[in-house]
Computed example of a mutant assay.
Amino acid sequence: MATQMQAVVVPKVNAPWELQNVDRPEAGPNQVLVRVHACAICGTDVWMANGTLSFREFPLVLGHEGVGEVVAVGAGVTQRAVGDRVGLPMVQKRCGRCDFCREQHPNSFVTAANCAAPILTGVNVDGAHAEYIVADVDGTVLLPDGVSYELAAPTLCAGFTVWAGLRRAEVKPSGRVAVVGIGGLGHLAIQYATAAGYHVTAVTHSPDKEDLARQLGADKVVADGAGLKAAGGADLIMYTGSNHAALASAMDGLRPWGKVVMMGIATDELTLPALPLVSNSHQIIGSAHNGYEYLVEALDFVARGAVKPMIELFPKDRVAEAYDRVANGDVRFKAVVTY
């Protein structure tokens, strides 16, 4: 096997993404070496590339929506074998020693935020925008046979996020779900909620997305919270936006005892009127990547064809173009780079 590979390197803040020749990693104890077939670009990647989020020094190799084939296993690995098709989600390994880890929580974003020294794929260690990647064996998930690499990739973060949020909300089977924002997360949230059997209302200010929302499975499409209320309201609002400006309006359509699940990452402040929040016993829940069992379920929906991420494919030599288009909001809805 060659000792070098090509990887996508972000040399400095706001720099173009570059395809470079670098040393190929080797699988150590309890690790697997994966030949990457595809990796999607997440909004978090954009924020790390432009310096909004910072977890280590540049240069960076990003990517936490990677999928591929195991080509080598390190000492002590029994859970995976050469030839296994796997996904590589962000939370790869917890430290296992800190106070948080002693409580034995499942790997999730809460682990990433609270473990003293987590290993986070594409965040504080090299990610999957490369031909090969090494990962702790427990930081991989088996892909179902029926899912392609290209459709599995965005499910590793975007699909995982929305399905885990819907599961955490524990909406009753007869409940009504509203999805605010139709983008990388929202277009999947509509599909997952529909596949789970809920009545789904899409909330969007973009007229050009109304027909798309219906094609994705939405029963109704409205522009704001007043429209949501008139359409029957919602027991759950899945809020997928990258800012919080539309949330207060959307909550005008939230039923008594209703819940809001916040899934989109944003840097602006969240301000809500207290009286209706308290009077209606509303709940605001933050949620992302709530345990790998939900990722397995999310992948199964895609494998069965019940959910289909909308993707644009880019070969690795066009990765700079892919990044620019994601950063400018010009991809509908997930850019997937093949390696």
Rank of each mutant, 00 (worst) to 15 (best):
G217P: 08
N30E: 09
G43I: 03
D136G: 10
A303W: 02
Y294T: 13
V82H: 01
D324C: 00
G146Y: 10
V180P: 00
L142S: 14
A213T: 05
M5T: 05
A27M: 02
L142Q: 13
A130G: 02
G175L: 01
V200T: 12
V179N: 07
D99P: 14
Y192T: 01
N280V: 00
H282G: 01
A2C: 05
F333E: 03
Y339T: 11
V162L: 11
E18H: 09
Y239K: 02
T204N: 05
N50P: 09
V91R: 12
A158N: 04
S242N: 12
D99V: 12
F109P: 00
S281A: 14
L277W: 01
V222K: 01
G291E: 05
T111P: 13
Q191S: 05
V67F: 03
V77Q: 08
A15I: 03
E18I: 03
F100V: 04
E69G: 06
V71S: 13
V296A: 14
F109Y: 11
Q283C: 07
P59I: 04
V13S: 11
H64I: 09
R35P: 04
V22I: 15
F100R: 12
K308M: 10
L247Y: 06
A112V: 03
R176E: 13
V13F: 06
R332A: 14
F314I: 13
V331Q: 00
V162S: 09
G76F: 14
T78W: 06
V221G: 06
A117N: 15
T201M: 06
D317Q: 11
E103P: 03
L120C: 12
A288H: 05
A169D: 04
R332S: 13
V46W: 01
A245N: 09
A250M: 00
I182E: 11
V125S: 08
Q31M: 04
A195W: 03
T155S: 14
Q20P: 00
V67T: 14
S148Y: 08
V110S: 10
K209N: 02
R214T: 13
T271A: 12
V73A: 12
W163N: 13
T201L: 07
S279H: 07
V278A: 11
R304K: 15
A288N: 13
D235L: 01
G225R: 01
